[in-house]
């Protein structure tokens, strides 16, 4: 049996953390380059949904900005799907395929593995979302009136940090799940599309429903981005973009801290209850 080459330099502390992050994000980004057909499926399927809702608005003779709302919302669905299926459920998949114990016995911290998954997923999904926005805008002739591009990009970035922090938090919860993981992830699709206002402004919700929905980072992120990118956006916004940005910063901090705390707790619980290697098909 061929022996592995010796490790030239043993890493620890922050360098180990960073190498683990990069190591786990690598297959996500490179995998997409190697299997380009994913790009087709991950953009084509959301585009079908986007087109469906666009034609509903066209049938109802809605103002043209609503078509843009659907295109931007449709692009954001890629992030939510990535959170559900490639973040939250990921540790469950790893358990099913037998990789999870390998993660646990490797020297890299689990938090870095989750962060690597998030980073890789974010990069890959941003590419897909960009393609959806470009295609949707061209196909349906969407007109943007961007008020402040730096603020728009900042809000997108903070919303993504909060969203992926939420994904890391739920990933640790999914560590304990078995067969029900798939169903729970599946269940969280349409209700979140509805609550986060992927296809309409949440200002149309009663205030307290919109406020509750704002706990999902995409809700405020989308609302703020629409306000900054469309002519009628400000009149249809829930809160001002500045306030929404502040709330998103708070959500990002809460979710990242919660992810770290929950991961430690759930990992210990999963070890104690022997759930790390179970595979109940």
């Amino acid at each position: 049996m061929a022996s592995l080459p010796p490790i030239p330099e043993k890493r620890s502390g922050f360098r180990l953390f960073l190498m683990t992050v990069l190591g786990r994000s690598y297959p996500r980004v490179i995998g997409m380059q190697r299997e380009k057909s994913w790009l087709f499926f991950d953009t084509f399927l959301p585009m079908l949904g986007v087109a469906g809702y666009v034609f509903v608005y066209r049938a109802l003779q809605a103002p043209e900005d609503y078509i843009g709302f659907v295109v931007v919302g449709g692009a954001m669905t890629a992030f939510w799907m990535n959170i559900l299926w490639s973040m939250s459920s990921q540790l469950y998949w790893e358990k099913e395929t037998g990789n999870l114990p390998l993660y646990i016995i490797a020297p890299g911290p689990m938090m870095a593995i989750l962060l690597g998954m998030a980073l890789g997923g974010l990069v890959a999904t941003t590419l897909r979302a960009t393609v959806i926005i470009l295609l949707g805008s061209l196909l349906f002739n969407v007109q943007y009136v961007v008020v402040s591009l730096p603020l728009l990009l900042l809000i997108f970035f903070v919303a993504m940090v909060a969203l992926y922090g939420m994904g890391m938090t739920t990933a640790s919860l999914f560590l304990l799940l078995s067969r029900e993981a798939w169903h729970i992830a599946n269940l969280a699709q349409e209700p979140v599309f509805f609550l986060s206002g992927f296809y309409f402004p949440i200002k149309n919700f009663p205030f307290w429903l919109a406020a509750a929905a704002s706990l999902l980072p995409l809700t405020l992120g989308l609302d703020a981005m629409r306000q900054l990118a469309f002519a009628t956006g400000p009149s249809l916004g829930f809160l001002s973009p500045a306030i929404e940005l502040l709330i998103l910063v708070a959500l990002a901090a809460i979710f990242l801290v919660a992810a770290r705390w929950l991961l430690n707790k759930m990992e210990k619980l999963a070890v104690r209850e022997g759930r790390l290697t179970e595979s109940r098909r």
Binding site: Y53, V56, L60, Y66, E180, L187, F200, F205
Partner: peptide, 29 residues
């Protein structure tokens, strides 16, 4: 994979949420 009550909720939440999206879109316009 779960108890009958949760399964019943699971079976109706998804379609109701999908219908709710269209209802809100329609009602706005």
């Amino acid at each position: 994979w779960t108890d009958p009550l949760l399964f019943a909720i699971y079976s109706i939440v998804k379609p109701l949420a999908a219908a709710a999206i269209l209802v809100v879109m329609y009602s706005i316009i």
